[in-house]
Simulated assay, not measured.
Amino acid sequence: MLNKWEGIILKSIPYGESNKIVTIFTKEAGKLTAMARGAKKPASRLAAITQPFTHGTFLIRTGRGMGTLEQGERGESMRFIREDLEATAYASYIIELIDRLTENNERIQGIYELLYDALHAIDERYDPEAIALFVEWKMLPVAGIHPVLHQCANCGATEGEFAFSFQEIGFLCHRCFHIDKYLIRISPTQLKLIRTFYTVPIHRVGNLTLKKTTKQFMKKLVRTIYDEQVGIRLKSRSFLDQLESTPELLPRKEKPEEEGE
């Protein structure tokens, strides 16, 4: 069967002398792999459209086993992602996270839109670190983690002072602080921001700018959940950690006025 699907290239692996095996996250059919014959040849019509981050429309022949990529038409170029080291690093992390948490031919509502919105936002030069945080929080349910963020995870209270509990994987109100001696105290602004990361679509937020300390705090929370509850290790995260420890590797950029705590 020949299918015309919108999608984004997650990864492209050389196969043999001239072919590639590409992983594509499609809007209509979820994630799938396909053979792109001859795509390693520079003159191939498949060479350009099988690069990671490529958004476009793909003509894929499916049947038993792996599909075959017959042709494709590029959509958004994602040029900035390809040219900027920091954008490339965070986009790679987002792609690897989504790839690791999803299965081939598994259709999960909202994942393609999340991937597209995230890459589009980074390509539009929104803060890639903040965009990655959105993806990390929103992918928790896909990883089987459903944090309780709308009320106290213990008593169900919706008002009062709150803290974050890794034991309960969610918020605890001040009446229930005693059940977790290792809880993390949070401000009302931080509580609101966590809920925003988890529930609000990226395209509805706009260009959110946050203080570095705020992003570090949010990153510590969500990555502790992944480390303790999900247990995946991503190569792209190691590179992000290296960039974090050696900021001189990145070109200097103008800093926007920051919000948050």
Rank of each mutant, 00 (worst) to 15 (best):
M1E: 13
M1T: 13
K4R: 15
G7N: 09
L10M: 10
S12M: 03
I13A: 04
S18I: 00
K20A: 01
V22C: 07
F25Q: 08
F25V: 00
F25P: 02
A29L: 15
A29P: 00
L32C: 10
A34E: 08
M35W: 08
A36C: 05
K40A: 09
P42G: 07
R45N: 12
L46I: 04
I49D: 02
Q51H: 07
Q51W: 03
F53Y: 13
H55K: 04
L59C: 03
I60H: 11
G65E: 08
M66V: 09
M66E: 10
L69I: 11
G72R: 09
E73S: 12
R74N: 00
E76G: 09
E76P: 00
S77N: 11
M78E: 10
F80R: 13
R82L: 10
E83W: 06
E83V: 09
E83T: 13
D84A: 10
D84I: 11
D84E: 15
E86W: 00
Y90T: 10
L97I: 07
D99M: 11
L101W: 10
T102R: 04
T102I: 08
E103K: 15
N104L: 05
E106Y: 01
R107E: 13
R107S: 11
E113Q: 15
L114C: 03
Y116K: 12
L119G: 05
I122E: 09
D123W: 05
E124N: 15
Y126W: 15
P128G: 07
A130K: 12
F134I: 08
V135G: 06
E136D: 12
W137T: 01
K138L: 04
K138N: 05
M139G: 05
V142T: 13
G144D: 08
I145T: 03
H146V: 06
L149E: 10
C152M: 07
A153K: 06
N154T: 05
N154P: 00
C155T: 02
C155Y: 05
A157N: 14
T158V: 11
G160S: 11
G160D: 08
E161V: 13
E161L: 13
F164Y: 13
S165A: 05
S165H: 03
F171Q: 02
H174F: 03
R175C: 03
R175Q: 15
H178G: 14
I179D: 02
I184V: 14
T189N: 09
L191H: 07
I194T: 07
I194P: 02
T196I: 12
F197W: 06
F197D: 04
R204E: 11
N207A: 14
N207K: 12
N207D: 15
L210V: 08
L210S: 05
K212D: 15
K212L: 11
K215G: 05
F217W: 04
L221Q: 01
R223P: 04
T224K: 13
I225Q: 06
Y226F: 13
V230C: 06
G231E: 03
I232V: 12
I232Y: 07
R233D: 06
R233Y: 07
K235V: 01
S238F: 09
S238T: 12
S238N: 12
L249Q: 08
L250D: 12
L250Q: 11
P251D: 10
R252H: 12
K253I: 14
E254F: 03
E254L: 14
K255I: 15
K255T: 15
K255G: 04
E257V: 12
E258K: 14
E258F: 00
G260Y: 11
G260D: 11
